[in-house]
Design a protein around this nucleic acid. Sequence first.
DNA 1: CTGAAAGCGCTAACAA
DNA 2: TTGTTAGCGCTTTCAG
Lengths: 357, 357
Amino acid sequence: MTRESTTAKIGNTAYHGRRGRRGTGSVILADVAKLAGVAAITASRALNSPDRVSPDTLKRVRAAVARSGYVPNLMAGGLASSKSRLVAALVPTISGPVFLETIQALTEALEDSGYQLMLGQSGYIESREDALLDAIIGRRPDGIVLTGIMHSAAGRRRLLASGIPVVETWDLTPTPIDMLVGFSHERAGAAVAEFLHACGRRKLAIVTGDDHRAGLRRKGFVEAAARLGSRGARNREMPTCFTPAPTTLGSGRIGLATLLRQHPDLDAVFCSSDALALGVIIEAHARRIAVGKRLAVVGFGDLGFARDTHPALTTVRIDGTAIGQLAARLIVTRAAGGAVAQRIIDIGFSIVERASA
Amino acid sequence: MTRESTTAKIGNTAYHGRRGRRGTGSVILADVAKLAGVAAITASRALNSPDRVSPDTLKRVRAAVARSGYVPNLMAGGLASSKSRLVAALVPTISGPVFLETIQALTEALEDSGYQLMLGQSGYIESREDALLDAIIGRRPDGIVLTGIMHSAAGRRRLLASGIPVVETWDLTPTPIDMLVGFSHERAGAAVAEFLHACGRRKLAIVTGDDHRAGLRRKGFVEAAARLGSRGARNREMPTCFTPAPTTLGSGRIGLATLLRQHPDLDAVFCSSDALALGVIIEAHARRIAVGKRLAVVGFGDLGFARDTHPALTTVRIDGTAIGQLAARLIVTRAAGGAVAQRIIDIGFSIVERASA
DNA sequence: CTGAAAGCGCTAACAA
DNA sequence: TTGTTAGCGCTTTCAG
């Protein structure tokens, strides 16, 4: 066979068998192979494991790819190799800045390893979650990352049965489906109570969203406060304002107003999100209450704006980027057939002390 | 053939030909078909077009699916039908709340039509964008949504060559690759200038990020101000503070401080994002400048918190949800083989008048 | 280092 | 309405 460039017909519409299908009409591997004067499998090797092919062949195949504008069909590749190079992430909703950092880090880390992210929003309807789960498992992703999601028992079973590596994040459940990267919300709440106690605050209160995780932080906060002898020895006694999801600046304002009506003497508020905390600060401003002096405010999340509020917001920082990166690493390791050293990773949290408390 | 349930071996590990491969070991359509006592294609029809199958067959296939826990392999289905039921969205970065609403609406609208969203972050490195494009085209998505992305000429060509429906969003470029859902940033900027002029403001200033779109709004703003005879008859004369991406509350504070140093008399500030505007408001608070009275502040985006600042923020509202929904509709229509009525959709904008201006 | 054959799991096309 | 056959475009297996 000569090595001169062939003027072969490009595109898989060329041949129609009697019962044949028409294909997509786009350039396929066989075209590239023909152009390069090699077999399809050799072209495939040149693209996927360049080391296993002679330098000359490699060069010719690459030239053929460039000339033809070939883009490999990853569905076909995935089907043949049962590796999709796809990772699915499930979140309750994407708007809500809390998990964004994690998703961003996850996307980037995965792209660096040649994986693509598929995003699913489960919303708050459970039936929808099940349909979504099937749509996701159906793509045979190499991994699934659950963020801020509590699955039904049925969902957990399907996930387990699928055999796909799963990473749960942002929480520290005792019995993960598979792998886990998170931290203890209860301990975080307790740490805030201890911090406020150390600051000399004794009349504590809470403005909180009513989701499960916020509930855990509240529990830790209330119990620690009781242990330390602050007001709130029992749950009932801790002034608490619940706000509906999503937590907003507006609910924070209402929250403080509500609390003050019944407890004008409170001297510290723990908010379940930075947005709520900013609302509390703004409401305090509007009422000429000196934040950081008469009233301590602590948020949760350390969103970008926390350092820039007036006064700057003391808050609990979670390293969402680290969560995303670790989750990506766990899945990539597993997908490569490796075993992970730790199936459960506690990334902890820290209290960022600023002027508001 | 009897219709009694067969105790057939489930899982495609059953048969190993001499040169055979081992498969994935999971339940496949053939297993379901065997259980239901029908041919594979009939099982396929029962799942994909239930109307084209007898009620009895349908029932038996569904029972077999439930019993075996079968989840269709969408890679195989996609390969065979050349329909991936996948739509890719490209954003520069996911953190940055501006495009979130659009992505959320897009995800939801697509899920409702049985499509899945693949997310790609191009970041700010152009070489990366090209690699990402190949990874995306390689999955043969049924559509691609570009949000806040300016593609290189090479990228546009690849996209065009791929034949995949493309929707560009959040902008109104004169020569879209394919379809477009957006609005005119220049007209929005002009509208704000006209609004401030009507409010009696004459000493205008700008705090702005330095991205392309913000630049267009600034251009429209400056030109309209000149036309109306406000200060800023030429670009040079409009007091302007540029801030690096991403725009934050902190840069807003610095922005106002910087402007006031040189132009202590200014009476209105147009910010290129609500985050900047909130920063300006907070800085004004800290300086005891009455926002809404001595100083008018206008933001851009109408993020959730805009209604809850103190005073509430006047801002430009873009219906990001509508953008996402329309983009989804365009792509679903196209994927179904239909023709879209309008290839270019201008969704406009509105100025939400609140207390800050 | 290169290649031929045989599927991956599914659906389009044709036939009954 | 149901079934048979032949691929979709790629990679694994086995053989040079």
